[in-house]
């Protein structure tokens, strides 16, 4: 267990003892990752917010089951993924489909615009195959190592590397800037 994992465990134990600040720290540290995953999964802001709230309620209630043997982000990622899948399975919320064919490559000018490019990239990420999108999210949103992600998906490390790479290559091809307007 590394120093970071130890501090996470201490944070969780403090939260379990009723320390309000620890709960806030957990929320502020991880809300973006959970929300980001949910947004990419559902493609809808309101649904992503609902899912994020569900995730944190579940996390708060099962905080005692976090034993520090894995990183908190690994545990949180698993909860987040399951909540999104459960919500979709239950028919409460359905992912908004995104068609890769509808994506238009950005113009050279848009390519340099962070706001426009972020929107385009997020749309493109939603259109990725789920296993590639999840692998990319585990690594880039939740900050998991390839090894942690591999353990979480129960696949070899090489598979995670391949999925992340394939996701980036697809995005790269989709988002190659054109000289024309878009």
């Amino acid at each position: 267990m590394g120093a970071n994992a130890l501090s996470e465990l201490e944070l969780v134990r403090a939260a379990l003892s009723g320390d309000e600040r620890s709960f806030e720290t957990l929320v502020r540290t991880h809300a973006d990752a959970v929300y980001g995953h949910a947004l990419r999964f559902f493609g809808d802001q309101a649904t992503a917010e609902d899912a994020t709230q569900e995730v944190f309620i579940k996390v708060f209630r099962s905080l005692a089951s976090f034993d520090g043997r894995s990183a908190f982000s690994t545990w949180l990622f698993r909860v987040t993924r399951n909540v999104c899948l459960d919500l979709a399975r239950a028919g409460k919320h359905r992912p908004v489909p995104t068609d890769l064919m509808e994506l238009e490559p950005p113009s050279v000018r848009d390519f340099a615009d962070d706001v426009v490019m972020s929107r385009v990239v997020e749309t493109a990420i939603r259109a990725l195959p789920p296993e590639e999108r999840d692998a990319l999210g585990a690594v880039t949103l939740f900050g998991m190592s390839y090894e942690q992600a591999a353990a979480s998906f129960d696949v070899p490390v090489g598979t995670v590397k391949s999925r992340v790479f394939r996701a980036r290559r697809t995005l790269s091809r989709l988002l190659e800037p054109t000289e024309g307007g878009a």
Binding site: A15, G18, E20, D32, G36
Partner: peptide, 23 residues
Amino acid sequence: LPTPVAPDALVSRLVALGAQEAA
């Protein structure tokens, strides 16, 4: 590029939920 950021209102709700649980 920046990754998605949870809206402030959502974070505030989550913090409030955490405070309830802590209490």
